[in-house]
Design a binder for these strands. Structure first.
Lengths: 233, 233
DNA sequence: AGAATCGTGTGTTTTTTAGCATATTATTGC
DNA sequence: GCAATAATATGCTAAAAAACACACGATTCT
């Protein structure tokens, strides 16, 4: 805590290749009109029910998008990593947020006001096409996830989550440890199960030498087996 | 079967207000480039794994979008009614279909080739914005559905489906009978339960005077109670 | 018309998973 | 450094839902 961190962040056009489709004038307009937001670990970015005002783009850090269901039980519906955008679904649909967002770790975000992003989309068809593609990909993921989460058994759902985390966040130098450390509760909320069952099933996987655990670090030992468990459900 | 039906269908700009955003030239281009498809009851429109070639717009009829999960169990992920479009998600995401589509009843569809709709989107920002909105709305519905389907109990899920069907397809002249007749199996696939449980729970609702049934016709008698059951899960 | 198939309805059993209780170990705050 | 709190772990019980079995009426097919 001694040194005040005052690192220069990547500029907005470095964060995402997306902005390469903008004309010089459009890029200038964007650069004059975004703001930087910083969030601490476990800090809420926005809440369910709020009205969206900005499209958000992660510079560094990780964010979970969750929805509170019956009896306050929370489900993680998406996870966002650097260079990815979020908070645009509700804005584009002209709705209030149906999900909340919370930083997993210290996170830096570029926030682009609603009217700025809308003007850019309406004046740049490549940018519009990007969002159409992005939303279409997300909707496909949501459709697949809904079926997995409802039809697979606990082991299958947890295996799928572990593979998802590995594919999305990558692994550390050892080539096996998943590069994101989730609490058992988050892992449960991502896999549609109770925390107890997440803990229990992780232990079983460890006993079966499919994974190894060290606190929140999870190392995938037998990926084939994990994929098999995910597939058969 | 005696008379050959050769009714003139609504023209494409009558089917959806969407096309009002097109310029006269764009509308002409569209009208020169779509084809009509007809499907019988229970006929497949497209299969999981196929490559999309056309955006589809329902003129008349009803279509279910489903996904086959673990052990061949089918889940209905969306339902489409007249004036609505479908089959565009996979196309825009540049993926093969992750879902299949099947006509509930005799259905007439206008099919717009991929390159035609893409050209129109790229040359008309209002059209692009329409699809951005539409996809955003669908993604919100998918997010909410995933949580409902996983967290609510059988009664809550079935109640939610019945309300969804009423809100989406409306009611008949009596003001209570839902204007779509699904098999018990489809109702089960929509509500993430087995056919037996759909049948059983419908009977329970009928005994509790929340609904009344006559074959596949379902009449909602106590809407407040149904909404309550859906809400508490 | 009769056989076969399909959709519907109902009871019973078994599996899966949530819920709860409780212990133990980390982490955080003062 | 120590108390308070949160996270992890594990066993037991109860509830929910699937699976299975079987009966019956309505359609469809030949």
């Amino acid at each position: 805590m001694a040194k005040k961190q005052n690192v220069a962040f990547k500029s907005i056009e470095e964060v995402s290749d997306l902005w390469k489709v903008l004309t010089p004038d459009q890029l200038k307009y964007l650069k004059n009109n975004y703001v930087i937001q910083k969030y601490k670990k476990n800090e809420i970015v926005y809440c369910e029910g709020e009205t969206p005002t900005h499209v958000l783009c992660i510079v560094s850090g990780k964010v979970k998008i969750f929805r509170t269901g019956v009896g306050g039980r929370s489900q993680i519906v998406r996870m966002v990593k650097p260079c990815e955008m979020f908070a645009y679904r509700a804005m584009f649909a002209n709705e209030d947020f149906v999900t909340g967002a919370c930083a997993f770790e210290p996170t830096v975000i570029y926030a682009i006001p609603k009217d700025v992003i809308k003007k850019l989309i309406m004046s740049n068809s490549d940018l519009a096409w990007y969002f159409i593609q992005d939303l279409s990909i997300d909707l496909g993921i949501a459709d697949k996830r809904a079926v997995s989460l409802t039809q697979k058994h606990i082991r299958g759902r947890l295996a799928e989550s572990l593979i998802f985390l590995r594919d999305n966040y990558g692994v550390e130098e050892d080539g096996a440890t998943i590069s994101i450390y989730l609490s058992r509760e988050d892992l449960a909320n991502l896999s549609n199960m109770t925390t107890s069952n997440a803990i229990r099933t992780l232990s079983t996987f460890a006993n079966e030498k499919i994974i190894a655990m060290d606190g929140r670090k999870i190392k995938i030992i037998d990926e084939d087996q994990l994929r098999k468990i995910s597939k058969i459900g």
